[in-house]
Amino acid sequence: MRDLAEKWSVTPDWDLAAITAPGLMVRALAGLDQVLVSGDLDAWANVSGLEGTGVGAFGAARGDRYTVRLARDRLLAVSGTPLTIAAGWHPEGFAVTPISAGLRAFEIEGTAVDAFIARGATLDPNQASPSAALSFAGINAIAYRHEDKLRIHVDRGLAAYLWTWMEQAAGHIAAGN
């Protein structure tokens, strides 16, 4: 019987996986607490104490706990420590959905980040866009800057594909192609 698993690339060990090229370093982020917030984002800000606007595409987030805007009425809250707000509907007018297990996050740093972005996205990284939800490497992704690094969140099922794409992109950048 054919082993169809051979058709697929082996999922990296995310704790150890790293891509290095001149001016580029990519690694997977572990331990981020992530929740989707939908509905009245001003009410969310009042209840949670976090930003209700959130950073947009390639916008700069700072600190250990921040929000990223996905749509007019939806954002992603990210924290390095567990968020204490309860999941489910809040009568103030918003819903909270834990999605830590659904999204895989990557962090990219180095002087070649702009070249890396240029290969993955058609969006001008210097042109502000209110939403960080965009197409990157042909898939839906959430892309923004955290401190001086680029962070990308994708559906966990697409993480191995994106990793393969990033390995190839880093190879092309290193080769000057």
Partner: peptide, 17 residues
């Protein structure tokens, strides 16, 4: 490639629509 303006996000690649 053509840019379409999303009322919320602003100009984006037509392939996103």
């Amino acid at each position: 490639m053509q840019l379409f303006p999303c009322p919320f996000c602003g100009p984006r690649d037509e392939s996103e629509f």
